[in-house]
Design a protein around this nucleic acid. Sequence first.
DNA 1: GGACAAACTTGAATGAGTCAAGGAAAGACA
DNA 2: TGTCTTTCCTTGACTCATTCAAGTTTGTCC
Lengths: 139, 139
Amino acid sequence: MPTAVEIEQLVRAADLRVTRPRVAVLTAVHEHPHADTETIIGEVRTQVGDVSHQAVYDVLKVLTGAGLVRRIQPSGSLSRYEARVGDNHHHVVCRSCGSIADVDCAHGSAPCLVASDNHGYAIDEAEVIYWGTCPACTP
Amino acid sequence: MPTAVEIEQLVRAADLRVTRPRVAVLTAVHEHPHADTETIIGEVRTQVGDVSHQAVYDVLKVLTGAGLVRRIQPSGSLSRYEARVGDNHHHVVCRSCGSIADVDCAHGSAPCLVASDNHGYAIDEAEVIYWGTCPACTP
DNA sequence: GGACAAACTTGAATGAGTCAAGGAAAGACA
DNA sequence: TGTCTTTCCTTGACTCATTCAAGTTTGTCC
């Protein structure tokens, strides 16, 4: 878990101005992987007081664009964010409660991009979502 | 492409009542793979006249539950539906225009379900979305 | 054909996410 | 440190895909 100073450096390294909402949002995403927007807003407000939801949406969009956070959105679920970026990992989602866990790529980094027939598409990312039932929801 | 009679048999075989909206929706999904809800509503109305959007939403939900259609929802996209079910295929999505194409599983059916560490989840499906740029959007 | 349960229509509501305009703060430079 | 410029945040209203609820119609079985 990065320290407050490290979070600040991450933001600065991405050529973004360092503001309290940005630091708070990035910290919240680090501390609550796979949290939805509402959870992040609540966490940010706990840390720095009143922050408009608009600001959080905007910050999340900026951080996503800068590659500091990653947005994931399984079908039927709200947008969720995680700070683990740059590696090649996927997710397993519980059909029952919606909980999400990280899964390292089963095939290493390269084969994941191999499609049998790409139809002329230039593929740059393979996103894998495993659907199943989490231990807590298994009878 | 199934005939009208075959569509009707599909619905009946799923223990569902055969109604005009259901036949029309299932036909539309067969004829327009990866269409969004609005497109399907338009197509259904072309075929059978006025049908409430509510009915289409309901029918799509029922057909999805019965396994006759599959709902796909790439991040940042509206819900889309396809009638190709039961096989193990994935999708490639254009980041630019949102177009979708089918991709057969590169690893056959079984390996797709293998995660390196399933965290105790009972995995029953692996959904893969390849992100890239379609030929029409490539400069 | 009649009865019952399942489907459909109508109309309104929900709520995540977005748009727009003005005020506030961060960073740069002297 | 003080000022300036640019970027960011706040406020408030709005969009629109999807869902909810109540009442009516239709399909299926006997």
